[in-house]
Write a protein that binds this DNA or RNA. Structure first.
Lengths: 128, 128
DNA sequence: GTATAATATCATTGGTTGATGATATGATGA
DNA sequence: TCATCATATCATCAACCAATGATATTATAC
């Protein structure tokens, strides 16, 4: 028989994926694929508010997905590991084939697509 | 100058990653890496409740991360695409290097590790 | 038909979390 | 020094979502 996966490892890995699972954080990671950027650059490219971006950057930093280098009064952020970019690419590639399903999945939504939620059609005669 | 990333694509991709970002869903995906399993098998291997697993399976199905095949009164689930497994592997590989940071990141927690939350400690020393 | 196993659906709800706004810190230049 | 730019921190709160428990559906066996 198989072993259960180590619960702690699963929790940590889920947490890692959640780093990629928020539109704000993901847009930060995506713009950083091109190379290091200051916070101001990130704000411009993503359209996030300063405080919001800074909060998410702290999160990504703590999680080790990005790294920061201070330079005068600027802070340059970059992806901390090549595998972060690889994960983004794999995600894009996969999405290109499953996008419709993702769009239609209504169990959870990204914050900015919540208004797109659609009611699930109940199946024949299920009622209570 | 760079272009902003397409907002809709970012939302969808974040949503895709969130499929991996919950411990219950992730544990389902992980046990399915070994091969197809019935729901009952999944319940045994993951320890999830029937209703909880079924809800998450519906989600993963809708999102196109897993696929189902009916066989008598059983339903066999399997990963729908090799890239799902590749994403899991990449995540594992990345986690092995950033686990401590993920563990310490307190902006969000996985449901089952919430009691582990601890105060933020400022970090330094970025790598690349 | 009845009983039961396998799976799916759905409403409820408690805990979570992202965005905001205000404020704080740090760095540069005048 | 003061002013301003660049970034970080933090409390608040509305919105969300995962787990539960109950029920429904479908399939097989008797």
């Amino acid at each position: 028989m198989y072993l259960h996966a180590d619960p702690k490892a699963v929790d940590l890995q889920a947490k890692l994926f959640r780093g990629f699972g928020d539109p704000s954080r993901l847009s930060i990671l995506m713009v950083l694929r091109q190379g290091p950027l200051t916070v101001t650059d990130i704000l411009e490219k993503t359209g996030l508010s300063q405080s919001n971006a800074s909060n998410h950057l702290a999160c990504l930093r703590d999680c080790g997905l990005v790294a920061a280098e201070h330079e005068g009064r600027y802070v340059n952020y970059h992806l901390s590991d090549d595998r972060v970019g690889e994960l983004l690419e794999l995600g894009e590639s996969l999405l290109s084939d499953v996008a419709r399903g993702v769009y239609e999945c209504t169990r959870y939504n990204t914050p900015s697509s919540r208004h797109l939620s659609q009611a699930r059609v109940p199946r024949s005669g299920a009622r209570r």
